[in-house]
Amino acid sequence: MSDNAHAPAAAGHAPHDAHPDSFYIKIWGVLLALLVVSVIGPELGIRIVTLITAFGIAIVKAYLVVKNFMHIGVEKKYVGYLLITMLALMVLMVGGVGPDVLRHDGTRWSNVAAKKVVEDGMKAGSGHGEHGGDPHAAPHGEAHGEKPAEPAPAH
């Protein structure tokens, strides 16, 4: 690890180190401007604007950090492939589990406990005065349990 300890040229990527400090300060300024937009946008209360300004801008901010601060563009290509593979694993996990988590009923099943949790939570409203109250009042195992739906009537 210390073979290049005193060699400034080996202390980083030579090509992108041509950037002066002012370049990074500009990127930081853009990131802060995006932060302001991501906070103000959702205040409008318009769903699509919230999605774009909060989550869309988060992606843009992440891109700016990865590209300009982490210098992914001048890194070996396999680093990018490695990171994309990990992201793909995350997407695979979400895609595989999502249908069971996002939905509380299906053709032949119904997650009664989960539906009750949603119903109770909605009734509780903003939860004033019950900060410690648990909308997931059902026992843990029950909350995640499923029971078969009633057979569909024959047509």
Partner: peptide, 17 residues
């Protein structure tokens, strides 16, 4: 975000030795 700026500036300084 600001601490990331100082981190990348530190890298820049290290690159210059």
């Amino acid at each position: 975000l600001t601490s990331s700026l100082s981190a990348v500036l530190a890298h820049n300084a290290a690159s210059r030795g």
